[in-house]
Structures are given as C-alpha cells and as structure tokens.
C-alpha cells in the first residue's frame, strides 16, 4: 500500500509548524509519530496535500512534575511515558496505559499528542487523560490557549483543535487516591473492544474507551461513587446514556454489558490499590 503523493514540510519549531499550517489549514496534516495518520494514508482514507513533520521540534518530549499536575510534552512517545519515573510515581495510570497502547513498535513511535489530537474513541490514552482530568495546551495563530480535557473530544476523530492549531502539552492532575485500568480485546495488539480508565478518591472520574463516538466519561458511575456506592453498584450504571458501536468484535448490547463488568473490575482494582 502506497500513500497518495503529498508535499512534505519539516517544522523546526512550533511557530514554524503553525506558519506552515496557516498556508492551507484544511489540506495540511501534522505528522508526529505517524502511527495514527500513516496507516490511514496508506489505505488512502486520508490524502492530505501537505504533511508538516513536527517530529523534530525540540523540547516537546518531556514528563515534568509541575506541582499540582504533571506536564507532558505532546511529542512524548508512549514508551517514554511508560518508563518515566515522574509519570510512574505521580500519574501511574498514565504510565500504565501508555504501556498498553498497540505493541512495542507502536509505542516506540507513537506520541501522546498525536494520540489525543487524532481523537479516536478506541484509543487508550485519551481515556486515561480524561479520567485523570486536566488541561491541554494548544498553540495557534492567536497564541496559546488551554482547553480543559472535558471539552476536548467533540466527535468521532474530531477534537477542539482548530485546523490551524497544534497541541503542545498535556497537563494531568496528580494525587489520585487510586486508579484502575481495564482493556478488553481479543488480541493484545488490538484496539480495545471496551476500555475503562478509573481514578478514585475525592473526585472520582471514570472514562471509557470505544463506548461511543468519542472518549466519554461514565457520569452515572461517578455520581454513584460520589454518593458512596460500592464499586459493583456504581459499575451497574456504566452504560447509562451511552450508545456504543456495533462491529465485528462486539454488538452494542454486549459492549453495554461488558462495560459494567470492566468498570467494576477497574474500580475494585483502584480501591485495593492493585491498579
């Protein structure tokens, strides 16, 4: 499979990337690790006229302890996030989930920024970030803005990122009392059929993978937990208000069942500290 022809531009800085984007925002795609975009281009499901390679921009790969939150550069690869000491001690959910994405080769190339910007509801990292809560730092022609993660995922492969903007940093909250992650698939390398990222404590947040057109929070579960419900009782509300997809791997009905089991297991893991 060979992608359709495109013009290749390399950005040395965020400003340069933004300037290149501005020339033809709709016909241009940013290329980081390429593990979301290149497969689509090979199948010719995506045929951008211009690729702006941001992979060489310096200073965008880091995991930093920033007091009440951890700041992660958008070009941080899954492998680097998985093995980051800061991530492992301060936001272990994120480090763990980074180690569950795709396979080792994918984790050596794929970046957290690319994964979030792609906005695929079947991806793991968006759910982890959504569960942790935090802010996405976005740069665009008008300067830098901060987008709360709760307002970032708008639709299938659609985010709050404008066509002329670039995601540069991800900030996630520290201090969760416990966390759990469940990924259910038929082969280890595959996308999750259903996934659950859960954070418990004073502000419990539960985010779901592949349960709708976007990464979503299980609001009913969170309400129940806040009201003191047991994991099992809270998990029973996991599919509330959701209309998950039906595909080769699972029907809507099965996903609605599966999510209640996986949420319960994620919460049980979180509360017993087993992850």
């Amino acid at each position: 499979m060979i992608p359709a022809s495109f013009e290749y531009r390399r950005a040395g800085s965020v400003d340069e990337a933004l300037a290149l984007l501005r020339q033809d925002p709709d016909g241009t795609k940013l290329l980081a690790g390429g593990h979301s975009l290149l497969p689509l281009m090979k199948l010719r499901l995506a045929t951008p006229g211009v690729l702006v390679d941001v992979g060489r921009i310096g200073g965008l790969s880091y995991v930093r302890d920033a007091g009440d939150h951890v700041a992660i550069g958008a070009l941080t690869r899954h492998r680097d996030l998985e093995t980051s000491d800061v991530a492992r001690s301060e936001v272990p959910l994120l480090a763990h989930v980074a180690g569950q994405v795709g396979d080792p080769q994918v984790r050596h190339r794929g970046t957290i920024g690319g994964s979030l910007a792609h906005g695929d509801p079947a991806s793991d990292l968006p759910a982890a970030v959504l569960a942790l809560g935090g802010t996405l730092v976005v740069q665009g022609p008008g300067g830098t803005r901060e987008v709360p993660v709760d307002g970032f995922f708008l639709g299938f492969l659609e985010t709050a990122l404008g066509p002329d903007e670039m995601l540069t940093e991800i900030r996630v909250r520290k201090g969760a009392a416990g966390w759990g992650f469940q990924k259910f698939n038929r082969r280890a390398q595959d996308w999750a059929i259903v996934g659950v990222a859960a954070v418990v404590g004073s502000d419990p947040r539960v985010a779901l993978v592949n349960m709708g057109s976007t990464t979503v929070r299980a609001r009913g579960v969170e309400e129940a937990l806040a009201a003191g419900a047991s994991p099992a009782d809270a998990a029973a509300r996991a599919a509330e208000g959701l209309d998950p997809p039906s595909d080769l791997n699972a029907s809507t009905e099965y996903r609605q069942h599966l999510v209640t089991v996986l949420v319960r297991r994620a919460l049980e893991g979180a509360t017993t500290g087993r992850g």
Binding site: R186, R187, A188, Q189, D190, L248
Partner: peptide
C-alpha cells in the same frame, strides 16, 4: 472471513482478521 449481507468482506486486513500472536 466475515461478510456483510451485500457480500463485502469485512476482514480485509490483519487488523480485522485476527491471526493470533504469541501473546494469545
């Protein structure tokens, strides 16, 4: 090798057609 009612093969890639790996 799954087909839809119109006769389209749905499992056209090794992402959809689940050849197991060592992990399975």
């Amino acid at each position: 090798a799954a087909y839809d009612e119109a006769g389209n093969l749905l499992t056209t890639s090794l992402a959809d057609y689940l050849v197991p790996a060592a992990s399975e």
